[in-house]
Write a protein that binds this DNA or RNA. Structure first.
Lengths: 180, 180
DNA sequence: CCCAGCATGTAACGAGTTACATGATTCG
DNA sequence: CGAATCATGTAACTCGTTACATGCTGGG
């Protein structure tokens, strides 16, 4: 049971889902490929944290829909009381930024333009998901106890952190332009 | 030559340093343990990106001081022109946040109090480093072309992202309290 | 006297990515 | 007709962490 395993458990606790679906739901908060998820789900099922039913589909491939067991729910609650490991941010742009003095203004500028575009994309995604969430549960997400509460505050965080990063990109580009 | 390798190259390009020292300098921007750095430096030296001189010390163990070669500097400049891979943030708190509805207010609150404390620590570190940097190069860091420019904008980013995260933690705690 | 910091390294393991593998449907 | 999406899996590899290993110095 590693961090990803608990993450999957948390998703399944709200809505039973297939591995493919879990991968998609998890994307905005934790990046994991299907090749990491499928074997882990199988292992968690063997150890009794999850169970699955095979759901045949006519137009699409069959799916394995996983749901949480009592053992899984207990483990999940226990995990929430334990201390959280420190977040790790790996951003190649940080390392490139450190070396900006070695390069010309154009090359430098391009780095931040690219990041600006990426942030706008992400911001748009978080805002869209937030709107959808509000529609899906009219007014309730601010209520702790609502199964949407966590997602609501996570998406809000996504929005504000993307805005902060955008501001930074623009500030850096201004600094670069001032010396043109 | 992976991302970490370029990161080390960037540090060494500014100031020749030992592996131990590089590990410390890199910490605020990219987390890597000495066990990952030492073998990588050795490999980079063998491939001609770096060279080192053994510096004997009387009171402390001898060190290998690495400096960048012409091949290394060329590779570094080339890397800066290539497109940057997307940043990855792995934060266990995100996954726990998703499951907040499964737990009581106290457990939930503790998670964010812990994170608040961590952010305050980090904020303090970034602010201290920023002050030191300003002293070390009176007024010049805003100048692209100054070898301190990159570090200056990175530390500024550190400060503002920690402030953003602190605000989020406090907002979440307010929401939790409103329902007490 | 023990712990923290300086300084370097290796070995074993766990986490994560890329690539291989298959196969149906739908949309442009 | 080809690309994208749904759906599941394995294999090989790289990246990153933890633990093992050594040794000296200075401070509490």
């Amino acid at each position: 049971m590693n961090t990803l395993a608990y993450g999957l458990l948390g998703l399944v606790a709200r809505t039973p889902s297939s591995g493919y679906d879990l991968m998609l739901q998890l994307q905005p908060f934790w990046q994991a490929k299907h090749s990491q998820i499928y074997p882990l789900l199988a292992k968690m099922e063997q150890e009794g944290y999850l169970e699955f039913t095979r759901v045949p589909q006519t137009d699409r491939p069959d799916k394995k829909v996983y749901s949480i067991t009592e053992k899984g729910r207990t483990a999940l609650r226990e995990w929430l009381t334990q201390s959280t490991s420190e977040p790790v941010l790996r951003d190649e742009l940080f390392l490139k930024t450190y070396c900006l003095w070695l390069t010309d203004r154009n090359t430098a500028r391009k780095l931040f333009e690219e990041r600006e575009a990426h942030c706008l994309e992400q911001l748009n995604m978080y805002e869209t998901f937030l709107e959808e969430l509000k529609l899906a549960c009219d007014g309730t997400p601010q209520d702790h106890g609502s199964p949407y509460f966590g997602e609501y505050i996570l998406l809000s965080r996504g929005v504000s952190s993307m805005r902060e990063e955008l501001n930074w990109c623009r500030w850096v580009m201004e600094l670069l332009d001032q010396q043109a």
